[in-house]
Design a protein around this nucleic acid. Structure first.
Length: 271
DNA sequence: CCGGACGCCTGTCGGC
DNA sequence: TGCCGACAGGCGTCCG
């Protein structure tokens, strides 16, 4: 579910509401998410002061004095800040308790999410160490894309969703960025000009930034830490709009499976 | 190394 | 109405 704009929206909410607080501990109601929840999480967290909420790719990093909580929301995960008296509901798997009575509650129906604790540098964690550049970092350029694309035959949509190339682009924003770039999602990665990659890199940044400004995209269950939805869904040009007219030329938008994922595009505007 | 398929897990929706 | 398959915002692993 959440791509970079959604995770960044959550990060901002958590940072403003939770930074500076001290953990009382944790309650787990699940054996494992994508990986087992750390044994003894309560004792690991108790007394830790949360001094910063950061983001790397689609991971949230909750920096504490003695270590870092690494969270990933998977497809269906969300976080809420609630009062500890609110009874947990279905799929409310984890509560991280703060000393002021507030609780950071993790709900994840599909359990593709993740919570880990590390006392080492989280950037060096095996799950994070191979990640590509952040799309807003200087290293992410059209020339970088063009260089990495050389000789590759994979559909460009799968290419830009590969987190080893660049992080944060998931299925929604890949579709949107390719539409705005006029590039067909199935086009072979190595057969796209440098000029088009320059434009694509800019457009990826622009789409992600606009989505962050809108609070992310809510299709069904995404919400920020206050439970409020994002409204970028209103601005989606092609995602989920098969059968509707192309916003640029009026041709009927198509849906096809490309790179194993549902893809939406205009066969007249995108080549 | 590369590209593609699969599995993880639950909820929802469309077709019959 | 009920059932069943397909599909859903991610990602790691395995196979050819």
């Amino acid at each position: 579910m959440p791509e970079l704009p959604e995770v960044e929206t959550v990060r901002r909410g958590l940072a403003s509401r939770l930074e500076g607080k001290t953990f009382l501990g944790a309650v787990s109601r699940v054996a494992g998410l994508r990986l087992p929840v750390p044994a003894g999480l309560h004792d690991l967290l108790a007394g830790q002061r949360l001094h910063a909420v950061e983001r790397r790719a689609k991971y949230l990093l909750l920096r504490c004095d003695g270590g870092t909580l690494i969270l990933h929301l998977g497809m269906s995960g969300y976080l809420r800040v609630v009062d500890r008296d609110l009874p947990p509901g279905r799929h409310d798997h984890l509560d991280l308790l703060f000393d002021d009575g507030q609780v950071l509650r993790f709900n994840d129906a599909r359990r593709f999410g993740l919570l880990l604790w590390t006392t080492a540098d989280p950037q060096e964690h095996p799950l994070l160490v191979g990640l590509g550049p952040e799309p807003f970092a200087g290293a992410f350029t059209g020339d970088y894309l063009h260089e990495r694309a050389r000789g590759r035959t994979v559909p460009v949509k799968a290419f830009i969703m590969d987190q080893r190339l660049v992080v944060g682009v998931g299925n929604i924003y890949a579709n949107e960025a390719l539409f705005l770039s006029g590039i067909h999602p199935a086009r072979a990665t190595g057969r796209i000009s440098r000029d088009r990659y320059l434009r694509l890199a800019d457009i990826i940044r622009t789409v992600l930034a606009e989505a962050i400004a809108a609070g992310g995209t809510t299709l069904r269950d995404f919400s920020d830490s206050d439970g409020k939805p994002g409204y970028f869904a209103l601005s989606l040009r092609v995602y989920g709009r098969e059968g509707e007219p192309c916003p640029r030329c009026g041709h009927t938008l198509r849906q096809e499976r490309i790179g194993g994922r549902s893809s939406f595009f205009c066969s007249r505007c995108q080549h």
